[in-house]
């Protein structure tokens, strides 16, 4: 096993499974912010994103023995968080809508102009009108900066179907932004 900071995800997963549960903190530390952004854009709320990331990490710990490829912990964890975000959206739709784009608006008050803040908020609200599948492909490509090929690999789907989903998302976003302009 490698020492200190050189530990790979696979090393950490194997160590945790061998009983060193405190090492799991390294995985959480490593990926919490990266996935919080994904969750925040998917859920439209930084608070909801934080809860989702926390919940997903706890769930991943419980199921860690089922992680067939410890070296691909990242891809495996992403699917857990993704399911959590999709479930959260279904739940919040059924009860009360999330306070959309709250984190965006709060942050923009300090580091951006009012116009930029308004555009960001409008786009975040429009994103919440997409289907979860459409929103996800938009977030992974334009927020996380993944290529269609990378997204296809992560979601086990084809580039053609992702592009179709994305093009529908573009049209829907345009419609939403125009209606609320």
């Amino acid at each position: 096993m490698r020492l200190g900071a050189e530990l790979t995800d696979g090393d950490i997963v194997r160590a945790v499974l061998a009983g060193e549960r405190e090492r799991y903190a390294q995985l959480v530390e490593r990926y919490r912010d990266r996935y919080a952004r994904y969750a925040a854009r998917m859920l439209g709320s930084a608070d909801a994103a934080e809860d989702a990331v926390q919940d997903a990490f706890v769930r991943a710990f419980d199921q860690l023995a089922q992680c067939k490829e410890p070296d691909n912990f990242l891809g495996w964890f992403f699917l857990i968080l993704r399911n959590r975000c999709f479930a959260e959206r279904r739940r919040s739709r059924a009860t009360a809508p999330l306070e959309a784009a709250d984190s965006v608006a709060a942050a923009d008050r300090t580091d951006g102009g009012a116009e930029t803040a308004e555009r960001r908020r409008a786009l975040q609200l429009a994103l919440l009108e997409l289907t979860p599948d459409q929103r996800e492909v938009f977030v992974l490509k334009h927020v996380e900066g993944l290529s269609y090929g990378q997204i296809a690999e992560r979601l086990s789907t084809s580039v053609a179907s992702l592009k179709m989903r994305m093009h529908r998302a573009y049209d829907r976003l345009r419609q939403e932004l125009r209606e609320h302009a």
Binding site: E29, R32, D33
Partner: peptide, 13 residues
Amino acid sequence: AVDRRPVEVPGVV
């Protein structure tokens, strides 16, 4: 208008 700023959640660990 895409918001690519990081979202920090330090308390999660």
